[in-house]
């Protein structure tokens, strides 16, 4: 074989390998989805979505679970978005490039990789015990906010960094102050990227069970939460609870609840993909 032939062969071989890897992941996911759909779709009806939990599988519903998930989603967003975006703006635009700043930077990046159960333990000590919030929605949302803050901070900074320097210079040269430039040019241009980060981080928060179990969220909550101090459960905990029962009927319930949870996360991811697509379509200059 000549050198060129060898190179072509390597090229082909890598392509085939890459194709296999791509399909491997997709096929496993597809099998899992089909399995879940086959098992759970028939169980999924209006009653299932609007019934309270019950000891009898056939009467049990996920009303409290998805209501809890929605509460947690909204409250986490309200807490984490302003904090995360403001911290991202500060670090990127105002933070001096000192030793302290790079130390902070590395630590925030590391925080994004800390296992979620650790955040649960932190939440348990800080919010549940010290601040005496108990196993409430507020404690849960605060804990999940800690979990997603690093992600929001990092993506906000990336989005701000991606705003072309020429845009800032144009604004400064016309006499704009730093804050005016940030508010009128940088943030609008970075919104797509920031939103994408926010939504992906929220979709992660929606799927978490471990930290909420640690802070004491219950599997069995017989009422829909009405305020931030109420006890709650969320879909992943409900699913976890049903999956660990021996009866076939509860496994079917779990499959149906998984479909609902997947719908929520797919919807969030869909919005993120759409925002990124819109941002890429914007004219570059």
């Amino acid at each position: 074989m000549t050198n060129a032939q060898l190179n072509r062969f390597k090229d082909k071989a890598f392509q085939a390998f890459g194709l296999f890897c791509t399909f491997f992941g997709l096929i496993v996911l597809a099998i899992f989805l089909l399995d879940i759909l086959k098992e759970g779709l028939a169980r999924l009806d209006w009653d299932f979505l609007t019934s309270l939990p019950s000891r009898r599988a056939a009467r049990a519903g996920i009303l409290t679970a998805w209501a809890g998930t929605l509460w947690i989603l909204v409250m986490t967003a309200l807490i984490a978005i302003p904090l995360g975006v403001a911290a991202g703006i500060y670090l990127e635009e105002y933070g001096k490039k000192t030793r302290m700043a790079s130390f902070l930077e590395i630590n925030i990046a590391n925080l994004a990789g800390v296992p979620s159960i650790i955040y649960g333990l932190l939440g348990l000590e800080l919010f549940v015990r010290q601040l005496q919030l108990g196993g409430s929605l507020l404690a849960g949302a605060l804990t999940l906010s800690l979990l997603v803050l690093p992600i929001i901070i990092v993506t906000t900074r990336e989005a701000i960094k991606a705003v072309p320097k020429s845009l800032r210079e144009a604004s400064f040269a016309l006499g704009a102050s730093k804050w005016q430039t940030i508010r009128m040019q940088v943030l609008p241009a970075a919104t797509g990227g920031i939103m994408t980060g926010i939504i992906l981080s929220l979709s992660r928060a929606v799927g978490e069970a471990a930290p909420l179990i640690v802070i004491g969220a219950l599997a069995y909550v017989p009422f829909v939460p009405e305020g931030p101090m109420d006890e709650f459960t969320v879909l992943p905990i409900q699913i976890f609870n049903w999956v660990s029962r021996p009866q076939e009927a509860f496994l079917i319930n779990a499959a149906a609840a998984i479909i609902v949870l997947l719908c929520i996360t797919f919807m969030l991811n869909g919005i993120a993909v759409y925002l990124r697509y819109r941002q890429q379509k914007k004219v570059k200059w």
């Binding site: 072309p164 020429s166 845009l167 210079e169 144009a170 604004s171 400064f172 040269a173 016309l174 006499g175 704009a176 102050s177 005016q180 009128m184 040019q185 609008p188 241009a189 914007k282 004219v283 200059w285």
Partner: peptide, 29 residues
């Protein structure tokens, strides 16, 4: 910078309307 204006090498209009580009310097005042 109100007294000393600048034009850059690469045209760098804001991603806004023509009108809003021209009056940007006044709006921020």
């Amino acid at each position: 910078r109100k007294a000393v204006g600048m034009v850059f090498q690469k045209p760098n209009p804001f991603p806004k309307s023509i009108f809003e580009n021209v009056v940007y310097g006044l709006r921020i005042q």
